[in-house]
Simulated scan of single mutants.
Amino acid sequence: MKNSFFAAILLLLCFSFTAFQCDDDVPLTQGEELARLQDFKSEIEALANASVCNETSECKFIAFGSKPCGGPWSYLIYSTSIDVSALEAMVQDYNAKEQTYNQRWSVVSDCALAQQPSSVTCENNTCVAVY
Rank of each mutant, 00 (worst) to 15 (best):
K2Q: 11
N3I: 07
S4H: 05
F5S: 00
A8T: 01
L11Y: 11
L11G: 15
L13R: 02
S16R: 02
S16E: 07
F17H: 05
T18Y: 10
T18P: 00
T18N: 12
A19K: 02
Q21F: 06
D25Y: 03
P27M: 07
T29P: 01
E33P: 00
L34I: 02
L37H: 09
Q38T: 11
F40E: 10
S42A: 14
S42V: 02
A46L: 14
S51R: 08
S51Y: 00
N54H: 03
N54D: 07
E55Q: 14
E55M: 04
T56D: 14
S57T: 13
S57W: 03
C59W: 08
A63T: 11
A63D: 10
F64C: 15
F64T: 13
K67M: 15
C69R: 05
G70S: 00
G70T: 06
G70M: 12
G71Y: 01
W73C: 02
S74D: 13
L76Q: 03
I77Y: 09
I77Q: 01
T80K: 07
T80A: 14
S81T: 05
S81F: 05
I82H: 11
I82W: 11
D83F: 05
V84W: 06
S85T: 04
S85H: 00
A86S: 14
A86M: 14
E88I: 01
A89V: 04
A89G: 03
M90P: 02
Q92W: 00
Y94I: 01
E98T: 08
E98N: 04
T100Y: 06
T100M: 00
N102A: 13
Q103M: 09
S106M: 12
S109H: 12
L113V: 14
P117R: 10
S119P: 11
V120K: 02
E123F: 11
N125A: 15
T126D: 05
T126F: 01
V128Y: 00
A129M: 01
A129V: 06
